[in-house]
Simulated assay, not measured.
Amino acid sequence: MSATREPEIIGLDGPKVQKWIDGLGIGAQLPLTFSRVGAGQSNLTFLVTDTDRGRWVLRRPPLGKLLASAHDVAREHRILTSIEDSSVPTPAVYGLCTDPEVTDVPLMLVEYVDGRVIDDLATAEALTEDQRRRTGLSLARTLGKVHEVDLEATGLDTLASHKPYAERQLKRWRMQWEGSHSRDVPLVNELADRLAAAVPEQRELALVHGDFHLLNVITDPTSCEVSAVLDWELCTLGDPLADVGGLLAYWPQQGDLPVPHAAPTLPGFPTHAQLVAEYAAATGRDTSDVGFWHVLGLWKIAIISDGVRRRAEDDPRNAYQVRSGPSRDEIIDALLARAAREADAIGL
């Protein structure tokens, strides 16, 4: 009788990773099972389960060729361990593996945080209007906690350049577009030029999450407060209003085309004005330049969306949970059109 062969885990060497996790001394009861989870299509996320109902989360970069500086799991590990004693709610980190005998890319094991992830319309529709309101306002306040992190005390003052953030973002995402775009879209460069000509003065340097939206947080089902902020791979140092603008970009209003990771347009979810007001009340910051960052956020998400499509085309194993709806091109065009409308509205 032939031995039963273990199913292949795409992106992981199951037996080797299991041995590494066993050596961390976290009480995992072998054997472990690994399953791909989440709707994200950037770093790959796996649920790790043991025989005693223990659960953890494992992260690794996408498969195939990556753009320089993208999907840096080791950097994400540094950030999470640096802010674990701050007021920012994050999962505990248990280990980082860079051993080439175990894995060809860095792996990070973190705590499984139980709670609510509003990652589809059905989950959002099941909430009351008051729960939606409290959830959205908690996101705005949680951003304030991210931006309060003491850079010197955490050692994160060396995480990234201290040069003006808007210029860095425009340069980085223009390069990403030029290095990976799948079709010519003149509006990308047109918006980049308009943004470059209207960069606001940067008044402070703060920790910036870089990808803060509804799907990248876990909330408490009872209080609706954010209990964990996830996916720190784009975190850097910069203007804190960039995160507020990014949140608005992932927070469509009635009539906007649904895009991946966006908050559903349902009654109860705060308006853009309410989110900005809650953030301003929590932090005391002047938010008058948030419109610029909203436009930049929409532009950036369009470029990221094209990169996701390109990775899936280059290596189909990166694709996951593709849902019916608008095509990737329609999504990108809609994001850029929204960015152009917002730019017109604020006189950019």
Rank of each mutant, 00 (worst) to 15 (best):
M1R: 14
G11A: 10
G11V: 03
K16N: 14
V17I: 12
Q18M: 15
I21S: 04
L24V: 08
L30F: 09
L32D: 08
T33H: 11
G38T: 01
Q41A: 12
D50K: 01
R55L: 12
P62K: 03
P62L: 08
K65M: 05
L66D: 01
S69M: 00
H77D: 08
R78W: 08
E84Q: 13
S86L: 07
V88S: 04
V88L: 06
P89M: 10
P91Q: 11
V93R: 07
G95S: 09
T98M: 13
D104A: 06
L107Q: 09
L109H: 05
V110N: 06
V110M: 14
E111A: 07
V113D: 02
D114V: 03
I118R: 07
E129W: 14
D130G: 08
A140Q: 03
K145P: 00
T158I: 12
P164W: 06
Y165C: 01
Y165G: 01
W173D: 02
W177R: 00
G179P: 08
H181I: 05
D193V: 14
L195V: 00
E201V: 04
T222P: 02
W232G: 02
E233V: 03
L237V: 08
G246D: 05
L247M: 15
Y250S: 09
Q254F: 13
L257S: 06
P258V: 00
V259Q: 09
H261S: 12
A262K: 01
L266R: 00
F269T: 08
T271M: 07
Q274L: 06
A280I: 10
D289I: 01
H294K: 13
V295G: 06
L298E: 14
L298N: 07
D306G: 09
D306I: 04
E313F: 09
D314I: 10
Q321V: 12
R323K: 15
G325N: 00
R328D: 11
I332S: 06
L335A: 03
R338K: 15
